[in-house]
Amino acid sequence: MNAYFHMIKRWDAIIIIALVLLSFLPLAIFSYQQTKVDQTNANLVAVITVDNEEIERITLTGNTESHTFDITASDGDTNTIEIKNNQIRIKAATCPDQVCVRTGFIAKAGETIVCLPHKLVIEIQTESGETDDIIISS
């Protein structure tokens, strides 16, 4: 076993650390963007798109009742979506890989569920509350 530890050279560590830091880059950019959105009265909204067309927009904040519904494309691809306790998930899908189902519930801003075979994306966005519409005029 010791021989394997000796196998690791200095540049191995440098490269691995650099790549790990790089993989956090999108997260850093995203959270930087999020700080600009006022979090206190922001609503979380789940946006469901199929083939880049927005199908549904569901407010998650304060959405405590649970309900499920199906989204069926014209070619019969079906995703069953469940909303429960401010969270959203794909409960069942007719796609071959089932990655979207295994992703489970998402609830935080920026989290996504992607069902690539059906080109269905659920993305959670923040929508700042009513403050958006106020126009200050002098």
């Binding site: 691995i16 790549l19 790990v20 993989s23 880049n52 920026g110 996504t112 992607v114 690539l116 080109k119």
Partner: peptide, 26 residues
């Protein structure tokens, strides 16, 4: 590719989880 197909780059936020497993398996 996934974020290009889904047209949202927030898919890339998933990268740290995959990288961690990538390091172990690598």
């Amino acid at each position: 590719i996934a974020s290009w197909i889904a047209q949202t780059w927030t898919v890339l936020l998933y990268l740290p989880v995959l990288s961690f497993i990538g390091i172990l398996s690598g």
